[in-house]
């Protein structure tokens, strides 16, 4: 069989979404950032909102997210994405503004912006990649780093007396009246990817219906920062990260489903 016999529209079973650019992603192989990018892009394509989507990229490994999403984008200062998104969405109520942020960006330096945007119930979508570490800067402790976990700034393991407790920012945000959807997902298996995609779809649908803030956490690996091969990192994630950050919906349609 020749190539032209196979490459026919009726044989097409999978096509990369056009909401992603052709740029080669710089993420480490096996990192959850890449998969999550693809899911977001697919949702935007399926909803037909590419022309309305505005991405606010963070500072972190996904600082270059704007090179991968074929949507108009802005790069925020470290932690400030929700503030940018607040203004963008208020000035363009029919657009689909979303932020894409890591745990350092969202839950350390940007905690104030995150909490206040959620508390005001800004009609934005926040995608939160929780890998329990600062991937970008070389693996230092994040607010979400687990107790006992070794990082560049906790070389003997995170110690509660010294560094405090891991911050469950997602549970905290669910308490705020402004959040309409708060859910925690992952992208380490095909089934998990499907669930995450559904959650992200729901988030953008909520935004279309002007429901307030939709917050989707994706618990992800950082194989480089954790100093593990990617498959091992996923196993470690299931065993350890999921124990502290259990997968599932926390708030749906403005109602807490877990306390």
């Amino acid at each position: 069989m020749f190539n032209q016999d196979i490459v026919k529209p009726e044989n097409l079973v999978y096509k990369r979404t056009e909401v992603l650019t052709d740029n080669v992603m710089h993420y480490c192989p096996g990192c959850g950032h890449g998969t999550t990018h693809r899911i977001i892009a697919e949702v935007i394509e399926e909803m037909g909102i590419q022309d309305k989507a505005i991405c606010v990229a963070p500072v972190g490994c996904s600082v270059l997210a704007y090179n991968y999403f074929e949507v108009d984008s802005l790069g925020a200062a470290h932690g400030r994405a929700p503030a940018l998104a607040t203004a963008i969405q208020r000035l363009n109520p029919d657009k689909h503004t979303f932020t894409y942020q890591g745990d350092g960006d969202l839950a350390a330096i940007g905690t104030a912006e995150t909490i206040h945007a959620c508390n005001r119930g800004e009609n934005i979508v926040i995608i939160f990649i929780n890998n329990g570490i600062y991937g970008m800067t070389g693996g230092q402790m994040a607010p979400t780093t687990l107790v006992g976990m070794k990082t560049a700034t906790t070389p003997y393991g995170r110690n509660v007396e010294l560094n405090g407790y891991p911050l469950q920012i997602t549970e905290l945000l669910a308490q705020l009246p402004g959040t309409y959807l708060v859910t925690r997902q992952s992208v380490h298996t095909a089934a998990a990817v499907r669930k995450t995609k559904k959650a992200i779809r729901q988030a953008f649908e909520n935004q279309k219906n002007k429901k307030g803030t939709s917050f989707v956490e994706v618990v992800s690996n950082c194989n480089s920062g954790w100093k593990m091969p990617a498959t091992k990192a996923n196993e470690w994630m299931v065993e350890n990260m999921f124990a502290k950050y259990p997968i599932g919906d926390i708030k749906v349609d403005g109602e807490l489903v877990q306390k």
Binding site: T137, G138, Q140, T153
Partner: peptide
């Protein structure tokens, strides 16, 4: 943390000066 100076805090955390001199180090 921020590049290119993260080694300042990383070195302090590895040295544990709070055990040697009582110095406080906080991220």
């Amino acid at each position: 943390p921020i590049t290119p100076q993260s080694e300042v805090m990383e070195h302090l955390m590895a040295e544990k000066p709070w055990e040697k001199t009582g110095m406080v180090v906080l991220q």
